[in-house]
Structures are given as structure tokens and as C-alpha cells.
Simulated assay, not measured.
Amino acid sequence: MKETKVMKRKFIIASMIASLTIPALAIAATDGAPKKSHKGDIFERLDTNKDGEISFEEMTAKSTERFSKLDKDGNGTVTVEEMTVSKREFFDKLDADKNGTISKEEAKAFHEMKREMRKERHAARMMEILDSNGDGTVSKEEFTAASDKRFEAADTNKDGILSADELQTMGPKKHGMKKG
């Protein structure tokens, strides 16, 4: 029992170190200029079923997924050895030239690769939202319909005008766009 608590404590400490290290590498790759995130970005990522609410399962899904990746032998615990393997694998991803060090260029390249992956996911989500007939393209009519639907949803008092308050409530929905 005591060994489990020690392992949990080590896992939490290692996770905290990783959570501090990765953003530092990303900031270093962007010449120290941290990027502002969109207001609803974290909420949108956690609200996986896009119902406007975050359930306990949604909140813990990423942690469970990360834990499962660390638990290489699938026994429900993460050993120091498993953590070490995981950290070495991550380092090796960053160390593109395999010289045993991570240069600013390598950190920047890794950051750019992650950014491109996010762009691709965003484009796929936008297509899912806008391509209402599922033909793989967005027509002017589909685009206009989505825009009209977004406006109507934001215009809560139905006066045909968006007030500052109505615009503010659109923010957490990531521009008010939801598949529906």
C-alpha cells in the first residue's frame, strides 16, 4: 500500500515537471513570445461531445489516456522505469538530429509540427460543422446557413441585433459554432 502511494506521488511529481517543461520548450521555440489562447479553447477541447457541459468522464479522459500510455505493461500502475522510458521517447522526438541535445531549432520544429497538427484538427472540425450535406466541400449556401444559425443562436432576445453581452456569451462556444 505504501509503495502505491510512493508511486502515485512520483507520478504526480513527474507529471508536474513535464507540464512545466513542455510549455517552456514551446515558449523557447517562439522566441519567448507566449501565444494568447482563445477564451473557449480549453473548454472546447474538454467538451468532447459538444453539449456545452463537461462531465467527469470528459474531464478525466485525457489524464486516463496519458496514464494508459505511460503504463506500458498495462498493469494499472506506472513504475519509475515506465516513466523513464516515456521521457526518453519524448526527448528522442525532440532530438531530431539524434546528437543527444535539443537545440532551439529542434524545439521550434517540434512546436511547428504540433501547430500543424492542431490546424489540421481545426480544419476537420470546421468541415464537420459547416459541411451540412457531407459532400466534403462547403458551399456558399452552407457557409451562409451556418453563419445565420450562429447569429440566431447568439441573438438571445431576438431583436436582430447582437449586443455586447450577446457577443460575450458566444465566446465559450468557440465562435458560437456547434454541430447541430
Score class of each variant (00 low, 15 high):
M59W: 14
R125A: 01
G40A: 07
I42R: 15
T169H: 06
L20V: 09
K35N: 13
L130F: 15
R121F: 09
E58V: 08
E3N: 11
S132I: 10
A61K: 14
K62G: 05
E58F: 04
G176D: 02
K62A: 10
S103F: 09
A123I: 12
A123W: 11
K173W: 05
L20P: 00
G74K: 00
I161Y: 03
T4Q: 14
M127C: 10
M16G: 13
I102Y: 01
R9G: 07
R45S: 13
G136R: 10
A28L: 12
K179R: 09
L162F: 03
K69P: 00
I54Q: 13
H175Y: 11
R118L: 11
D47E: 11
G134H: 03
A14K: 02
E106D: 08
T79I: 02
T169G: 05
F67V: 06
N133S: 05
K108I: 11
S15K: 07
D71E: 00
E3A: 12
N133K: 03
E166T: 00
A164W: 00
V138Q: 07
A28P: 03
A14N: 07
A29M: 07
F143M: 12
A96P: 05
T169M: 04
P34S: 01
H175F: 13
K10S: 11
A109E: 14
K108Q: 13
K5C: 10
A154W: 00
G134I: 08
T101S: 13
A123H: 14
K178D: 06
T137C: 01
M1F: 08
N157P: 01
A146G: 10
T101Y: 09
I102W: 01
I42E: 15
R66A: 12
K173T: 09
R66M: 11
T77V: 00
L162S: 02
R125G: 02
K39A: 12
L94C: 11
K87R: 12
E81Y: 04
R150I: 07
A14Y: 00
D95K: 00
A124Q: 14
F91V: 00
G171S: 04
T144R: 06
T77Q: 06
G176M: 06
D47F: 06
K87L: 03
A164L: 02
D92C: 01
H111K: 15
F91S: 01
I27H: 03
P34N: 02
T21G: 00
E166R: 01
K10C: 04
T64V: 10
K87P: 00
G74F: 04
F11L: 15
D71R: 01
D159T: 04
K36S: 13
E57R: 14
T48C: 13
T30G: 01
K119D: 12
D95T: 04
G171E: 10
T30N: 12
D131N: 14
L94P: 14
E57G: 07
E89P: 05
A146I: 04
K158V: 01
I129F: 03
V80C: 02
D148C: 02
M126A: 08
T77H: 05
K98I: 02
V80K: 14
P23G: 02
L130N: 06
A26H: 15
M127S: 11
G32W: 05
